[in-house]
Design a protein around this nucleic acid. Sequence first.
DNA 1: TCCATTTCTATTGATATCAATGTATTTAGT
DNA 2: ACTAAATACATTGATATCAATAGAAATGGA
Lengths: 148, 148
Amino acid sequence: MSNSIEIPFSTTLMVRDTCLCLHVQRAARALARLFDDALRPAGLTNGQFSLMMSLNRPEPPPMGPVAALLAMDQTTLTAALKPLQRKGWVKVMENPRDRRGRLLSLTTEGKAVLARALPIWESTHAMIDGKLPDGSVARLRQDLQALS
Amino acid sequence: MSNSIEIPFSTTLMVRDTCLCLHVQRAARALARLFDDALRPAGLTNGQFSLMMSLNRPEPPPMGPVAALLAMDQTTLTAALKPLQRKGWVKVMENPRDRRGRLLSLTTEGKAVLARALPIWESTHAMIDGKLPDGSVARLRQDLQALS
DNA sequence: TCCATTTCTATTGATATCAATGTATTTAGT
DNA sequence: ACTAAATACATTGATATCAATAGAAATGGA
């Protein structure tokens, strides 16, 4: 006996259509592929581009605020820095004011890589802008910001 | 000599504020954490919940369409199925009509796990809905769909 | 039928992601 | 100054993600 616990197919369709988490994950994967493809000639992934761009500041930031800006776990940032350090694009140094902390900065070569990637970002982003209805991109950004 | 190639800080701020890819990745990470936390008592991550829900169909689907539905690489789906198979929640069988292919289905226990997770999804989603302005969630879904 | 092409999936290698945990350092309270 | 608590990162282990590649089976054209 024992009726097995079943979710109706109609519920499945409802969840698929309405789940915001699923929709965001889908879009995240699709956009990541799009930017990864575009940025490949520059030797960067979309995540590496965003991370390095966030390090292009007058003063080298510590890790915590950078992780918060990117809405990622601090351990994820530690891992993401590894390949960039290996390539000599990012420098991680001890914070003289707080020896627990690290300060992150782009190397000269890192800045050059980022500068070569920038026009690719611009054209890719313009392409997306063009494909979406006018104004929807700005609206989308606002809505997304409310989630993170 | 050689002036190093620098991107102005103002450009960095512009990219940070406008990059749709970054905004989507940020929201994706934040939402993933939120649902992962909520679903943890059910033993599922947000991705596993979405995948298993997409398998709750009258007829077991092959892998290709499932990967397309989730907008993920086919190799990602292969990997994502591994832990679910190990736990006995998903069954992967050869397609008798096409011996290259596989058919994916939930086991009885898988269906039970999914059924226990459903109320968690409902309450978590309702919580998000409540925190966002009226109507913005539906609009957001539409905009995201245009991207994937 | 035979063969080239296409389709469907798996494997490998690299990076991304987070939970759990540990270590070193700073801060705050006394 | 001393100590407990908080803070900033790193490490480990598991899963997620995709590119490149390879294998097997189906399909289509001659």
